[in-house]
C-alpha cells in the first residue's frame, strides 16, 4: 500500500469511529463512554485483533494529530471575543492558576513518593497537567522522558474530562471563571473542550487557564522543580 492510501484509510477510519463514539456518548453520557476513552479503545482493539503495527496506525492518523497545532492557534478566537472578561478578571486568573500549577506539581510529587515511584516515572509525571507540546518541553528541562510525559498528559486529559463535571458540582462552582479555570488548569485541551459545552465564557476562561498553566509551569520548571527534586529524591 502506498503511504497516501494508508493515510486516507487511517484518517477516515479514525474519523468515523470518533463520530460514532460521540453519538454513543451523547445518547448514554456515562464516564466510560467518554469519546477520548471509547474511540481509542475501539481503535486499539481493531489494531490488536488485525495484528496491525501501532507505528503504522500513528502514521495513518497523523493528519488528525497535526490538527492539534492549528487548533491551538484557533484558541485565539474565544480569547479575542472575550478579551474584556480577561482584563476584568486578571487577578483571579493569575492567583488561581498559580495555586493550580503548584498544587498540580506538589500533589503529583507527594503521591509519587507515597506510591514509591522512582526516577524517570516520578520526574515525567510532574508536568502532566499542561498541554502536550509544553509538557514535553518541561519534561526535557527537568530531566524526564518526553514520551512518558505525553502518555501522562493524555491520561490526565481523559480523567479530567470525565471527573470535571463532578468536581464542579461537588465544589458548587457557580461562576464561569471558576468553572473554566478549574477545567483548563486540570485537564488542558480536553478540559477546555468540556468547558465549551458549559458556555462561551467558560470556554474562554478555560483556554486562558490552559495557556497560563503552561506558562507558569515553564517558570516553575526553571525555578522550583529542580530544588524540589533535590530535596525529595536525594
Amino acid at each position: 500500500m502506498t503511504t497516501a492510501l494508508i493515510i486516507l484509510i487511517g484518517t477516515i477510519v479514525t474519523y468515523v469511529i470518533y463520530r460514532a463514539s460521540k453519538i454513543v456518548y451523547k445518547k448514554w453520557p456515562l464516564p466510560f463512554f467518554h469519546p477520548l476513552l471509547l474511540c481509542p479503545l475501539i481503535l486499539i482493539a481493531i489494531i490488536q485483533l488485525s495484528h496491525l503495527d501501532p507505528g503504522e496506525y500513528a502514521l495513518s492518523s497523523s493528519l488528525w494529530t497535526h490538527m492539534l497545532g492549528p487548533a491551538t492557534v484557533a484558541f485565539a478566537i474565544p480569547i479575542y471575543k472575550h478579551a474584556h472578561l480577561l482584563r476584568k478578571n486578571i487577578m483571579i486568573i493569575l492567583t488561581s492558576i498559580a495555586a493550580g500549577t503548584l498544587v498540580a506539581i506538589g500533589s503529583s510529587l507527594l503521591l509519587s513518593l507515597v506510591m514509591q515511584f522512582n526516577g524517570d516515572l516520578l520526574i515525567s509525571i510532574l508536568p502532566r497537567s499542561i498541554t502536550t507540546p509544553i509538557a514535553i518541553e518541561v519534561s526535557k528541562t527537568i530531566g524526564g522522558l518526553p514520551t512518558l510525559t505525553t502518555v501522562f498528559v493524555i491520561v490526565t486529559g481523559v480523567t479530567g474530562g470525565i471527573i470535571g463535571p463532578y468536581v464542579i458540582r461537588l465544589m458548587a462552582l457557580k461562576s464561569p471563571v471558576a468553572r473554566g479555570l478549574a477545567l483548563g488548569m486540570g485537564a488542558h485541551g480536553v478540559g477546555t473542550n468540556k468547558a465549551m459545552e458549559y458556555g462561551e465564557q467558560e470556554g474562554t476562561f478555560s483556554t486562558i487557564g490552559m495557556i497560563m498553566a503552561a506558562g507558569m509551569t515553564l517558570i516553575w520548571a526553571g525555578l522550583l522543580i529542580p530544588s524540589l527534586l533535590q530535596i525529595t529524591i536525594l
Binding site: 481509542p40 492549528p70 487548533a71 478566537i77 493524555i154 491520561v155
Partner: peptide, 17 residues
C-alpha cells in the same frame, strides 16, 4: 477545530499501545 479537539488527541491516546 475547537469543536473537534478531542479527535486530534485520539491518535496520541492510541499511542499508549
Amino acid at each position: 477545530l475547537l469543536a473537534e479537539l478531542l479527535l486530534f488527541f485520539v491518535p496520541s491516546a492510541v499511542g499508549i499501545l
